[in-house]
Design a protein around this nucleic acid. Structure first.
Ligand code: ZN
Ligand code: ZN
Ligand code: ZN
Ligand code: ZN
Lengths: 391, 391
DNA sequence: ATTGGTCAACGTTCACC
DNA sequence: GGTGAACGTTGACCAAT
């Protein structure tokens, strides 16, 4: 026994496996203190656990044990085990059987729990796919709400923004490292509805057809939400946004987004994880190192934020509208610029605002430039949303 | 030659006198909020991370846990962990930092591709969550279609079955090893709609309120679909269903479901993969080794399949209906049995059909028994459906 | 001082003779 | 009823935080 473990440590070049000390067959590591094969280990264990009593076949107690004659005499095989130093103390007792793991009765949900219509955690149709609520219906309802439009379209947009903006003070907010899956979905639905609500405060948007409205909402809500979330986050968390990547995901929840994604990517394998991170990193870079930093530097007013949000929407909208609507849209966009001019002149008493406008356009451009990357990620994510759908 | 004393080979007892609060062995500091040994800490962590489900060995839930009987019952060991105050929140989920790999020079899709309303693969709202189509609306439409009911309810059901059944011949069918994610979702939506369509061919079902209809559909479509798919698959593929796990997923697509899942689980890491497979295997066992084999043996007629399908529905429905509807439902179910009797007597000229009925009930029972397990899986799967929703 | 990851070394199961 | 290949579980050890 000493010799065998000695050899094991001294012979790293050894290509031939160390033989079983009992039967000379290829061994499988140390078992019960001796290098043995699995068969001899199992034999030794059974002999003791079952309290077997053996008799020598030849009555001489010296039968040869090797790989071809392993079964010839049990007594001599067991005695060789003891002689080679196998130890009964190493045998454990009374383990819980594997079969008690699954399935069983103690943790199963009751059928009544499953079919109870009042049960919120009802096991079926719990996922988004089979949720009977229709997002379309909710969005249509939002679009149908009539708004009053003043002669200052930018102020109208700001009113919409106020409807959906968060008003927390810094000290009341918890920063989460993990959020559960259902919450993530709810946040996204909230973002879409917020974007829809804000858009209805544009008189131009309301003048379009429902088809056009939906198309614009579909194409812009994602990037719109990021600018909205980042601007509010920077206002409240300041430097922490770009430095620690702390950001709001909803009215009441702020997260450390790096930790959240680390948690989300956990179940993936290494290869897949790297693939996703490769897509994710440039987006994080743009959102936090670029956009958030510029917002932190600019400290935009509420009207400026709304102006930027519209620029984001218009960048996409102008590519899908017909000529007639395009003209109206340009008029509307120009009027927003005029409102902004008045804001600088009358509210802020700024004559030299060119630099602020340039900074705003830089922010919009950063987000626009990576609109495409964001959509690619969404596309990939959708694949995963349906990953387990067959079960 | 009989083993007399068993000793545990734990770390040698040292100086500290404070025992593990779980197993009374020498503790190793505070682990997950409780003074425990390292073994109990590892056990607690594994139980949660791997999603283990235990069952009491003695079924009394009060097994003693100490250093000599630590392994005796895993349920009671785990319960004692919880009782002593060990906290799941303390388990960290990831330590590997997001690798700061260089952003890949990814090819960006054209904007026109993204906002083109005609583009089927439109990048936004492509997933199920943001699909603007409402499943509820489609199901309601199906429920609203009026049917003519004959004096043989079982024949009515069979007519519904014919509407949705596949009619391929063996030689025209491709067996796929992989299917894309969007298809999986479409299949599931198809299954729900098929089940809804079939249910409307029951005069009793049509007499219920919409709320009751939806509840029954929600609770039964999944297990209903599996019986429907399996019975059609067995009819066409015969032995291949239980032996190679070849099964239809839709009218035109048959898959090798083991290979499909192997492909689907590929991006997951080892631990997560094992966790999912552990949940999946007993379901595959029931569906293919048990149900499919019994179907292969029985070779049920079309009317018999419809009778079994209703039994599945009724098993759930009878638990959620009020007393009045319950009586009507029982009448309806009895009439189906009577139709089946006539089918045996007049169509098949069978007087001794007791054995066939017993076999049918065995199939229904197998599916019923594992209804709960299937729902548990769906619940787990839903978590994954929303996994990547933030991106 | 606690936690997670790893893997040798145990235990259990189950065709197979 | 014994055998042993295959697979599940445990916990000592070490790295990470
Ligand atoms: Zn051996
Ligand atoms: Zn002998
Ligand atoms: Zn312990
Ligand atoms: Zn117990």
């Amino acid at each position: 026994m000493v010799a065998s473990s000695f050899q094991h440590h001294l012979e790293p070049m050894l290509t031939q496996p160390i033989p079983c000390q009992i039967c000379t067959y290829q061994s499988h590591g140390v078992n019960f203190n001796v290098m043995t094969c699995r068969a001899c280990a199992a034999f030794f264990r059974r002999s003791l656990v079952c309290g077997m009593r053996y008799h020598c076949k030849t009555r001489k107690n010296d039968c040869r044990i090797d790989s071809t004659e392993r079964h010839f005499c049990r007594l001599c095989r067991f005695q060789k085990c003891l002689q080679m130093g196998m130890k009964a103390e190493k045998i454990q007792q009374n383990r819980d059987p594997i079969s008690s793991t699954f399935p069983g009765t103690s943790t199963e949900p009751e059928l009544s729990e499953i079919v109870d219509p009042e049960n919120e955690k009802s096991y079926i149709f719990h996922g988004t796919l089979y949720g009977f609520k229709s997002l379309l219906a909710e969005v249509r309802y939002i679009f149908s709400i009539s708004r009053n439009y003043s002669d200052s379209p930018l102020t109208d947009l700001e009113n919409g923004f106020k409807l959906i903006t968060r008003h927390q003070k810094r000290r009341y907010i918890d920063i989460e490292d993990r959020i559960n899956f259902q919450n993530l979905t709810d946040f996204r639905l909230g973002h879409i509805k917020n974007c829809a609500t804000w858009l209805t405060h544009s008189s131009f948007f309301q003048s379009l057809t429902e088809t056009e409205n939906l198309l614009i909402l579909k194409s812009t809500w994602h990037v719109w939400s990021w600018l909205e979330l980042l601007s509010v986050s920077v206002e409240i968390f300041g430097n922490q946004v770009c430095e620690e990547k702390i950001v709001f995901l909803s009215e009441k929840i702020a997260v450390d987004i790096v930790k959240v994604f680390r948690y989300i990517l956990k179940p993936l394998n290494k290869q897949e994880k790297r693939k996703v991170e490769k897509e994710l990193n440039p987006i994080f870079h743009i959102l936090f190192d670029d956009v958030a930093r510029k917002l932190q530097n600019l400290k935009p007013s509420s009207l400026e934020i709304n102006y930027m949000l519209w620029q984001l929407v218009w960048f996409v909208a102008e590519k899908v509208l017909n000529e007639d609507n395009l003209r109206h849209g340009e008029q509307y966009t120009n009027q927003l610029a005029s409102d902004l001019h008045n804001h600088y002149k009358n509210d802020l008493h700024l004559e030299q605002y060119a630099q602020r406008v340039l900074k705003m356009m830089a922010i919009v451009k950063s987000l626009q430039k990576h609109l495409m990357n964001i959509h690619k990620i969404i596309d990939y994510a959708d694949n995963f949303c349906n990953l387990f759908a067959m079960k």
